[in-house]
Computed example of a mutant assay.
Amino acid sequence: MARIRNGTWIVVTDSEKALFLRNLTDHEDPHLEVTGKDEQENPSDIEQSANRPGRMQDTGVQQRSALDDTDWHELAKERFAADLAEKLYHEAHEGNFERLILVASPQVLGDLRAELHQEVSDRVVAEIPKTLTNHPVGKIEDLVKKELDAG
Protein backbone atom coordinates (compact mmCIF):
# COMPACT_ATOMS: atom_id res chain seq x y z
CA MET A 1 0.00 0.00 0.00
CA ALA A 2 1.33 3.42 -0.98
CA ARG A 3 1.44 6.09 1.67
CA ILE A 4 1.48 9.86 1.53
CA ARG A 5 4.77 10.57 3.26
CA ASN A 6 6.02 14.01 4.17
CA GLY A 7 7.24 15.69 0.98
CA THR A 8 5.30 13.44 -1.41
CA TRP A 9 4.08 15.29 -4.47
CA ILE A 10 0.51 14.77 -5.65
CA VAL A 11 -0.37 15.91 -9.16
CA VAL A 12 -4.10 16.20 -9.79
CA THR A 13 -4.78 16.66 -13.48
CA ASP A 14 -7.23 16.38 -16.30
CA SER A 15 -6.47 17.04 -19.94
CA GLU A 16 -6.48 20.83 -19.56
CA LYS A 17 -5.22 21.71 -16.09
CA ALA A 18 -2.94 20.38 -13.39
CA LEU A 19 -2.63 21.12 -9.68
CA PHE A 20 0.72 20.44 -7.98
CA LEU A 21 0.48 19.61 -4.28
CA ARG A 22 3.05 18.62 -1.65
CA ASN A 23 2.23 16.83 1.59
CA LEU A 24 3.53 18.69 4.65
CA THR A 25 2.67 16.04 7.26
CA ASP A 26 2.17 12.26 7.22
CA HIS A 27 -0.26 9.69 5.86
CA GLU A 28 -2.50 9.63 8.94
CA ASP A 29 -3.36 13.33 8.67
CA PRO A 30 -2.22 14.61 5.26
CA HIS A 31 -2.00 18.35 4.74
CA LEU A 32 -1.49 19.27 1.11
CA GLU A 33 0.05 22.58 0.09
CA VAL A 34 -0.50 23.95 -3.41
CA THR A 35 2.92 24.46 -5.00
CA GLY A 36 1.77 25.28 -8.51
CA LYS A 37 -0.92 25.21 -11.18
CA ASP A 38 -0.83 24.68 -14.92
CA GLU A 39 -3.74 25.41 -17.20
CA GLN A 40 -4.14 25.64 -20.93
CA GLU A 41 -6.91 27.37 -22.77
CA ASN A 42 -8.47 24.78 -25.05
CA PRO A 43 -11.58 26.03 -26.88
CA SER A 44 -13.91 23.53 -28.51
CA ASP A 45 -12.84 22.07 -31.83
CA ILE A 46 -15.44 24.17 -33.69
CA GLU A 47 -13.91 27.36 -32.30
CA GLN A 48 -10.42 26.26 -33.35
CA SER A 49 -11.24 25.00 -36.84
CA ALA A 50 -10.80 27.46 -39.67
CA ASN A 51 -12.37 25.56 -42.54
CA ARG A 52 -15.11 23.11 -43.24
CA PRO A 53 -14.01 19.52 -43.81
CA GLY A 54 -12.56 18.87 -47.28
CA ARG A 55 -13.93 16.60 -49.98
CA MET A 56 -12.16 14.11 -52.20
CA GLN A 57 -13.08 12.79 -55.65
CA ASP A 58 -13.93 9.07 -55.56
CA THR A 59 -13.36 6.61 -58.38
CA GLY A 60 -17.07 6.41 -59.26
CA VAL A 61 -18.92 8.88 -61.46
CA GLN A 62 -20.01 12.05 -59.64
CA GLN A 63 -18.99 10.65 -56.25
CA ARG A 64 -17.17 12.62 -53.58
CA SER A 65 -16.25 11.66 -50.02
CA ALA A 66 -15.92 13.96 -47.03
CA LEU A 67 -12.58 14.09 -45.23
CA ASP A 68 -12.31 14.42 -41.49
CA ASP A 69 -10.86 17.69 -40.31
CA THR A 70 -8.12 17.75 -37.67
CA ASP A 71 -9.53 17.66 -34.14
CA TRP A 72 -7.54 20.56 -32.66
CA HIS A 73 -9.23 20.23 -29.28
CA GLU A 74 -8.10 16.60 -28.94
CA LEU A 75 -4.59 17.42 -30.14
CA ALA A 76 -4.30 20.13 -27.47
CA LYS A 77 -5.31 17.60 -24.79
CA GLU A 78 -2.61 15.18 -25.93
CA ARG A 79 -0.06 18.00 -26.06
CA PHE A 80 -0.97 18.96 -22.48
CA ALA A 81 0.00 15.45 -21.25
CA ALA A 82 3.35 15.75 -23.06
CA ASP A 83 3.98 19.21 -21.61
CA LEU A 84 3.08 18.04 -18.10
CA ALA A 85 5.40 15.03 -18.43
CA GLU A 86 8.22 17.36 -19.49
CA LYS A 87 7.59 19.66 -16.50
CA LEU A 88 7.64 16.68 -14.12
CA TYR A 89 10.91 15.51 -15.67
CA HIS A 90 12.54 18.88 -15.00
CA GLU A 91 11.24 18.93 -11.42
CA ALA A 92 12.48 15.38 -10.78
CA HIS A 93 15.83 16.12 -12.41
CA GLU A 94 16.28 19.11 -10.08
CA GLY A 95 15.53 16.85 -7.09
CA ASN A 96 12.32 18.62 -6.11
CA PHE A 97 10.48 15.37 -5.30
CA GLU A 98 11.31 11.75 -4.53
CA ARG A 99 7.77 10.34 -4.46
CA LEU A 100 4.88 11.16 -6.77
CA ILE A 101 1.19 10.28 -6.75
CA LEU A 102 -0.76 10.88 -9.98
CA VAL A 103 -4.50 11.56 -9.81
CA ALA A 104 -6.37 11.72 -13.14
CA SER A 105 -9.04 10.02 -15.20
CA PRO A 106 -8.01 6.64 -16.65
CA GLN A 107 -7.66 8.16 -20.15
CA VAL A 108 -5.43 10.99 -18.95
CA LEU A 109 -3.38 8.61 -16.78
CA GLY A 110 -2.76 6.49 -19.87
CA ASP A 111 -1.73 9.50 -21.97
CA LEU A 112 0.52 10.79 -19.20
CA ARG A 113 2.08 7.39 -18.46
CA ALA A 114 3.06 7.07 -22.13
CA GLU A 115 4.85 10.45 -22.00
CA LEU A 116 6.69 10.15 -18.67
CA HIS A 117 10.46 9.91 -18.63
CA GLN A 118 11.93 6.94 -16.76
CA GLU A 119 13.30 9.26 -14.08
CA VAL A 120 9.72 10.34 -13.25
CA SER A 121 8.15 6.88 -13.66
CA ASP A 122 10.57 5.50 -11.09
CA ARG A 123 9.22 7.99 -8.53
CA VAL A 124 5.52 7.25 -9.06
CA VAL A 125 4.30 5.41 -5.95
CA ALA A 126 0.57 5.41 -6.79
CA GLU A 127 -1.92 6.26 -9.51
CA ILE A 128 -5.50 7.14 -8.66
CA PRO A 129 -7.91 6.92 -11.62
CA LYS A 130 -10.28 9.73 -10.62
CA THR A 131 -10.96 13.26 -11.85
CA LEU A 132 -10.53 15.56 -8.85
CA THR A 133 -9.39 18.80 -10.52
CA ASN A 134 -12.49 20.77 -9.48
CA HIS A 135 -12.40 19.67 -5.82
CA PRO A 136 -11.09 21.87 -3.00
CA VAL A 137 -7.70 20.86 -1.58
CA GLY A 138 -9.21 19.61 1.71
CA LYS A 139 -11.49 17.23 -0.20
CA ILE A 140 -8.55 16.05 -2.35
CA GLU A 141 -6.62 15.24 0.87
CA ASP A 142 -9.50 13.08 2.12
CA LEU A 143 -10.15 11.33 -1.20
CA VAL A 144 -6.50 10.54 -1.92
CA LYS A 145 -5.97 9.11 1.60
CA LYS A 146 -9.19 7.07 1.29
CA GLU A 147 -8.16 5.67 -2.12
CA LEU A 148 -4.70 4.72 -0.88
CA ASP A 149 -6.10 3.08 2.26
CA ALA A 150 -8.57 1.06 0.14
CA GLY A 151 -5.86 -0.03 -2.32
Rank of each mutant, 00 (worst) to 15 (best):
N6M: 12
G138N: 15
Q40S: 12
A82W: 02
K139R: 15
W72G: 00
H31L: 10
V120A: 07
R55K: 14
V12S: 01
L116S: 02
E78S: 11
L67P: 04
H93L: 12
N23H: 02
A92R: 02
P129E: 07
Q62I: 05
R123Y: 06
A66E: 13
P136S: 09
N6S: 15
L19R: 09
E119D: 14
M1R: 10
S65G: 00
P136K: 15
N134W: 06
A150F: 08
D83V: 04
A92Y: 00
I10D: 01
R113M: 07
D29Y: 01
I101N: 00
E33G: 00
D14N: 13
N6T: 11
S49W: 02
F20L: 14
D71K: 08
H117P: 03
K130I: 05
T133I: 14
V12I: 10
L88Q: 03
F20A: 02
I10V: 15
D142P: 00
A18F: 01
T25E: 11
R52F: 08
P30Q: 03
P136V: 13
D83K: 12
R52A: 11
E119V: 11
V108G: 02
G54K: 14
T59M: 09
H93C: 08
A50R: 15
G36T: 06
E86T: 14
E127D: 09
V120E: 07
D142A: 15
P106Y: 04
K130Q: 14
L32C: 02
I10L: 14
I46G: 03
E39T: 11
D83E: 13
N6W: 09
G54M: 10
V103G: 03
I101E: 01
H73W: 06
T133G: 03
S65W: 07
S15K: 01
I10P: 01
A114H: 11
E41P: 00
T59P: 02
D14K: 01
T25A: 14
R79T: 10
P106D: 08
E119S: 14
L102C: 06
